[in-house]
Amino acid sequence: MKSYRRRPGRLLGVTLTNAFMWLLVIIVVYPIIWIFINSLKSNSELFLNSFGLPSKAMFSNYIDAWNQGLSSYFMNSIIVGAVSIFFTIALGSLCAYGIARFEFKGKNFIFYLILGGLLLSPQASLVPLFRMLDFLKLYNTYWALILTYIAYRLPFAVFLMHSYFLSFPKELEDSARIDGCGTFTTFTRIVLPISRPIVASVAIMTAIFVWNEFIFALVFVEDAKMYTIPVGLANFKDALNTNWTAILAGIIIASIPIIVLYMLLSKSFISGLTEGSVKG
């Protein structure tokens, strides 16, 4: 309160700033609400009046969207995501731990080789990857996505976990080793449990990546039954013709899991994002 008296202009500043921030909230949130409201209308109501409230909430649009393919896109995304996350963490943590804790020949070379992967844009490799996956008979399988996702997420995982492993004291592991644990047991019993926050960050980042990845999923899988959420959703635009309300419902359904995840684990999200500093 003291400060207000000292500078009378401050109250105005506070009010204006808050008003401005609330305006931004509206800009961010209103489009989503608009989509949500319209997703509850019937198609003809949408065309006649896209601004009012629905005369009767049609949750059937959600059922339509779900039954017209979204359920299988969901399953595909979950399968691909779960396997990718598992292997990214398993391989990434072993790799990072090895590099952080042990000295061996060519260590730096390997480390930079892995990190170099961060520099390469997946898009630029589309044509060769496509031909390679076809050659390996993996085209149009889950593995086409899983393998490429792991390959492109590993550098990031190693990068994050490596600096984390470096930052915690070696004494813990040493004492475990004195108690008779082998290197691998030390790793699984001591190191991984302590690293839970970073593992969570990597898992979440990989989950977001898989949930949203588009171009690989578009090119490496051909059958509509195998589509993951992003490609399946884009496909809705063609397949459902003018059944727009079902598309809108699809947008909402596809967005819910990540938002829920964020609400539950927002700390790991933010740290994962900031440590990684990589977009899309």
Binding site: S125, P128, M132
Partner: peptide, 11 residues
Amino acid sequence: MILVFVYLPIV
């Protein structure tokens, strides 16, 4: 794996 899926395609 990184070699095969990340570097090889560039070449």
